[in-house]
Write a protein that binds this DNA or RNA. Structure first.
Length: 940
RNA sequence: UGCAUGGUAGCUCAACUGGUAGAGCAUUCUGUUGAUAACGGAACGGUUGCAGGUUCGAUUCCUGCCUAUGCAACCA
């Protein structure tokens, strides 16, 4: 280096490192937040303010590690609560966990020899609890590492005795309101999990079934009811079609559509067959019968055939011909096999005709003795024997395999059956109208969510809340030992709740029924001895009542309704709905004011993430490579209302943006070194470009505020990024470097720039808080106290307010013109550079010819600052003629501006590197330009 | 199968009630070496999913299709 470099220049200086070193630094910062109790302090500071409560939808504790989708959800929630907090709201966040239920019980049982029947319920529950709580520890660590703040010391867990007790109390209220009943109904049943399932737990997948056509002969006693032409035929059969041969033992009827036309077809070798006219061809084809050999003897509507009796094909029992509107002519025969024990439609129509219910299958899917010769066979193993048996009896008309969509258990993925059993139901019918009204009191974001949940609630049937398992909250019902009558009294149920609150719900399995009743208790029906209901509640009930057991029960949450629920869009049929239904049932209103939903994470080509595709993204791996803030930035960068893409490419780009934000802050801090806000330049004295940036800054604040308020974080991301890159880094920062580095340290022009940098820093660090809190805190911790005030954590400061005094919309128009001129100048300079005429732009002078006078005037008004705008050594505006046309290095015309690039005049100043004709006037500094020598003198 | 929502540069997003498609990132070239594992400049890149229609003019409105995702149904 030459001696010239010894001239003092005011270079940036800061302790804020360029590299994030996130794996270490983020953890340090999180420790600082922990130790300083930042979350608690925030709440304390905001205690008197308006509340904004986001109620956490509890993640399920079946795994100790969170998925990327769970991370996304938690980060979104955290962005919201942090934003609301710095906006001044009282915004507590209590994390929750969903701890009961089948998947956990199954996971625990997987390692138990002998299965669920080999240990007592209390022992099993103990193991489930241990399993759930150990997973909680893992998930909690994952969540904290994301930088999520909240009351981690006191999360809510559905297995907590107090929550269980509140849940029981809600059950009691619903019982008192008459919304709970016990009924025999076919429900979706998983023979593998041995329990009933709710609608929300059913999913559809392809399944191959036996497709059979079966003859149901008309009883001799009913022949009189047949049409005249076939009265004397001795072999008349209704033909049904089914894909579930195993339900035939439960058959009690044959359903016809009342308005369809049915035909009586004489078929060689099969007697007379009855099917709908529309399906005759298909039926005969299935039976491989040549239609030409057949003869239609008669026809009748379904209505006319109602109440004819048939014989069950292989059981000595009647099967009644009935009418049902649900019968279609799409497939089958138009005659529908009806087994009220195995189908919802069948059940309803069966009740109408008083067919009764036969459901000869136990909880494991095995035929009971009611099934006669098929007893002790598992239902799915019975298909073939039944088909064979029908064949032997000559009742089988056709048989083939059919692959179709069929209901499966969403937990164990095995096929489900419909099975009529005694279950507890919440009567949605009882409060459907109120629920639908409540839906319209809620703001749904995006708005399509409203229709989604509305139509679901509108159509859903009663909610089956019984589960025949051990890991859950018991259904708190006692039955009179002799009468079998359920005791649905709220006072009794509340007494049970009190016991649970003291002892936990294990008490239900430990104590006799009498323990839960007052001594000498006598029920209305005279019962004094009781049995306990041994079913537990659907887990959706657990999480569904947290509006009561958490929001209303914890004083710091200040009661329902809360401001926001924020979950994946699948929760319209899950938690949003279970919460709504229970809340409407006991309070006649929704528990939330706004429901915000997000989509699902997919890979960069839009495919679902799955282990088999190998396109999964693990949150902890992203954090290890890039840090939590980059993952959070990802969440903020995408429009999460649709599918949310993630992948290596995206993360790498996000890491770039993170670095840009970081370096922007580093520039601010570095150039504010030694600045004291007391030295700030008054607004009127500011340089024009400085005023412009202050104005832009206000626009950014306003825009960001709008974007956050609308939960449109991806817009915030774009605005922030554009501001940092376009307005600051490539424009303002580049231009003011000259002033910052070479003007006298305390000169007005330097302080003018610093005044703006100071304002920008104040705003920027605050705007970073919700999305990249670690970065914001890191900046804060490296900001001198005289610049940031006494507050030790940036999480405790307030969101910036738009400073009206800085808003000057006219500056936009002014600078838009100058900036487009600057583009042309840059092109010209680049041309000169490409032809190796110049390197640095300071080696050039530019001469501009400007068509529009107003633009020329704007340029002229900048006077000395014009060179700063272009970062050249000289710049001149020539309105008429082509001054300096000779010897130019480049000549570019565009958008009304002609730019000539010429070699800079004079010599290069050793300090500011600009070329000048005023060099060496101060003998002490022979190689410095005038302004530099003045600056050096001033600073020495 | 029906309903809903989306389909704009390699990637993430723009374009107010129809008016010549814009940013950033990435890529390539390049300058600087006083934000330096940083910063600047330029270039490349789109018949806005496809096909029609309305209009002087459509990414924007209408119809159909394709495609992605979600939901419902596909029961017997």
């Amino acid at each position: 280096m030459s001696e010239k470099s010894s001239y003092s220049v005011n270079l940036p200086q800061t302790t804020f490192p360029m590299k994030a070193n996130s794996t270490v630094r983020e953890v340090e910062i999180q420790k600082f937040w922990d130790e300083q109790k930042i979350y608690e302090k925030n709440l304390e500071n905001r205690q008197a303010n308006t509340k904004f409560v986001l109620h956490d939808g509890p993640p399920y504790l079946s795994s100790s590690k969170i998925h990327i989708g769970t991370a996304l959800n938690k980060i979104l929630k955290d962005i919201v609560t942090k934003y609301k907090a710095i906006k001044g709201f009282y915004a507590p966040y209590v994390p929750g966990y969903d701890s009961h239920g089948l998947p956990i019980e199954n996971a625990v049982l997987k390692d138990v020899k002998g299965g669920r029947h080999s240990m007592s319920p209390v022992e099993l529950r103990k193991r489930c609890k241990e399993f759930a709580l150990s997973n909680l520890k893992g998930q909690e660590a994952n969540f904290k590492r994301l930088g999520v703040w909240g009351d981690w010391e006191h999360p809510y867990v559905t297995l907590d005795a107090r929550l269980e007790a509140e849940q029981i109390r809600v059950f009691g209220k619903m019982a008192a309101a008459g919304f709970l009943y016990k009924g025999l109904k076919p429900v979706s049943w998983c023979p593998n999990c041995e329990t009933a399932l709710a609608e929300a737990e059913v999913e559809y997948a392809d399944h191959t079934s036996d497709s059979i056509y079966v003859k149901f002969p008309v009883s001799p006693e009913s022949r009189a009811k047949l049409p005249e032409a076939v009265k004397n035929e001795d072999d008349v059969s209704f033909v049904i079609w089914t894909t579930t041969p195993w339900t035939l033992p439960a058959n009690l009827g044959v359903a016809l559509h009342p308005d369809f036309k049915y035909v009586f077809v004489k078929v060689p070798g099969h007697g007379v067959l009855v099917c709908s006219e529309a399906l005759k061809g298909a039926v005969l084809a299935a039976a491989s019968v040549d239609e030409a050999s057949t003869q239609v003897l008669a026809s009748a509507t379904g209505k006319e055939l109602e109440l004819i009796e048939c014989k069950h094909p292989f059981i000595d029992r009647k099967s009644l011909v009935i009418n049902g509107e649900y019968v279609t002519n799409d497939t089958g025969t138009g005659c529908v096999h009806t087994a009220p024990g195995h189908g919802p439609d069948d059940f309803i129509v069966g009740a109408k005709y008083k067919l009764g219910v036969v459901s000869p299958i136990d909880g494991r899917g095995i035929y009971t003795s009611e099934a006669g010769q098929f007893a002790n066979t598992r239902y799915d193993k019975a298909n073939q024997p039944i088909v064979d048996h029908l064949q032997e009896l000559g009742k089988l008309l056709a048989h083939s395999k059919l692959t179709h969509s069929y209901q499966h258990c969403w937990r164990c993925k095995k096929p489900l059956i419909y099975r009529a059993t005694e279950q507890w139901f919440a009567s949605v019918d009882g409060f459907r109208k109120q629920a639908l009204q409540a839906i319209d009191q809620v703001e749904w974001l995006p708005a399509s969510g409203r229709n989604r949940i509305f139509s679901m609630v509108e159509k859903r049937s009663d909610w089956c809340i019984s589960r025949q398992r051990s890991w859950g909250v018991p259904i708190p019902v006692l039955y009179g030992k002799k009468t079998g009558k359920p005791l649905l009294r709220e006072d009794v149920i509340n007494r049970i709740a009190d016991v649970f609150e003291r002892e936990g719900s294990d008490a239900w399995w430990i104590h006799d029924a009498s323990y839960f009743l007052q001594d000498g208790f006598t029920a209305d029906d005279g019962s004094t001895e009781f049995d306990k209901e041994m079913d537990i509640m659907d887990v959706w009930f657990d999480s569904g009542v947290t509006h009561a057991s958490v929001i209303d029960a914890r004083p710091e949450l200040r009661g329902t309704p809360c401001e926001l629920y924020l979950e994946g869009s699948d929760q319209h049929r899950g938690w949003f709905q279970s919460s709504l239904l229970t809340s409407v049932a006991v309070q006649n209103r929704a528990p939330y004011k706004t429901v915000l939903t997000h989509g699902f994470v997919v890979d960069e080509s839009g495919r679902k993430l799955s282990k088999s595709l190998g396109n999964g993204v693990e949150p902890d791996e992203v954090i290890k490579q890039y840090g939590a803030d980059v993952l959070r930035l990802w969440v903020a960068s995408v429009n999460y209302t649709d599918d949310i893409p993630i992948g290596k490419n995206m993360l790498a780009q996000l890491a770039e943006v993170y670095r840009k934000l970081r370096n922007t802050a580093r520039y601010l801090l570095g150039n504010l070194n030694g600045f004291d806000p007391a030295e700030a330049v008054s607004y009127d004295e500011l340089n024009e470009i400085d005023k412009y940036i202050l104005h832009r800054l206000q626009e950014v604040v306003k825009q960001v505020e709008v974007d956050f308020d609308r939960y449109e974080f991806f817009k915030y991301y774009q605005v922030l990024q554009n501001f940092c890159v376009v307005d600051l880094s490539s424009f303002y920062f580049d231009i003011i470097k000259d002033r910052l580095y070479t003007s006298a340290r305390k000169s007005v022009s330097r302080r003018s720039a610093q005044t703006v940098l100071y304002e920008v820093l104040q705003v920027l660090v605050r705007l970073l808080v919700p999305v990249t809190p670690h970065l914001a805190e890191d900046i804060w911790s490296h900001t001198p106290e005289n610049l940031r005030g006494k507050e030790t954590s940036v999480l405790l400061v307030d969101f910036p307010k738009v400073n009206e005094a800085y808003k000057k919309p006219e500056l936009d128009a002014f600078w838009d013109d100058l900036i487009s001129v600057r583009y042309v100048v840059n092109k010209a300079l680049e041309q000169a550079r490409a032809s190796r005429k110049i390197g640095s732009s300071l080696e050039a002078q530019v001469v501009l010819q400007v068509e529009k006078k107003e633009v020329a005037d704007k340029l002229l008004s900048l006077s000395d600052n014009l060179t700063g705008l272009f970062i050249t050594s000289q710049a001149a505006i020539s309105q008429n003629g082509a001054a300096g046309d000779n010897g130019h290095l480049a000549d570019v015309s565009e958008s009304g501006v002609r730019v000539l690039v010429l070699p800079a005049k004079g010599q290069k100043c050793a300090r500011c590197w600009k070329f000048s004709e005023k060099i060496g006037h101060n003998a002490n500094y022979a190689d410095l330009c005038d302004s530099c020598s003045e600056a050096v003198v001033a600073d020495s």
